[in-house]
């Protein structure tokens, strides 16, 4: 009565362990193709050949955004950085709402002549931090968070900002 159950239990557990191991190995092996975008550092080290489409992801470098309005569609020039390397990008078209300096971004396109990445499409990548605008202002005014140096501090350390934020 008990033996077949125990046998089935071990059989199922062994099968699961094998499957889990196989999946982990497969995912580790295909890791590069599962990555949605390349960082500027990866592009600087070994840029994909001219004209080959890939995705470039990083932060829009402060002070690099320049827009020219030629005809109907605006052309924007900016640099995407990951803190160590920066890649200049050119994009003609309407940018998403969240696009601004210091914001995460993923550009789809290919390297063009002169080391400029010519984007066909630009997607905005936002952080995982959610807070009301008055709390954001209070955090920045009190010097607890400077957006240039990374994400805001952990939510449970915001206690003191609550009263202040509510007042602004």
């Amino acid at each position: 009565m008990r033996a077949p159950r125990t046998r089935r239990l071990y059989l199922v557990l062994v099968c699961l362990a094998c499957l889990g191991g196989a999946t982990a190995l497969a995912l580790a092996g295909f890791s590069s193709s599962l990555t949605y975008f390349l960082s500027p550092r990866q592009v600087a080290a070994k840029a994909p050949p001219l004209g080959q489409t890939f995705r470039l992801g990083g932060i829009v470098q402060e002070g690099t955004v320049k827009t020219q309005l030629s005809g109907q569609t605006p052309t924007t020039l900016f640099a995407v950085t990951d803190g160590r390397a920066a890649v200049p990008v050119r994009f003609s078209g309407v940018l998403p709402d969240l696009f601004r300096e210091g914001q995460g971004v993923v550009a789809i396109g290919a390297m063009g002549p002169g080391g400029v990445f010519v984007a066909d499409e630009v997607l905005a990548k936002h952080g995982a931090d959610y807070m009301p605008r008055d709390v954001e202002q209070a955090l920045k005014e009190s010097g607890k968070w400077d957006p240039r140096f990374g994400p805001p501090p952990a939510a449970d350390s915001w206690g003191g900002e609550k009263a202040k934020g509510a007042g602004t």
Binding site: V106, G127, Y130, M131, W158
Partner: peptide, 16 residues
């Protein structure tokens, strides 16, 4: 492109 986990065992990154 999807952002990281806002809520995890380590805590929450969402204002109360």
């Amino acid at each position: 492109l999807h952002q990281g986990n806002s809520v995890s065992l380590a805590g929450s990154r969402i204002y109360p």
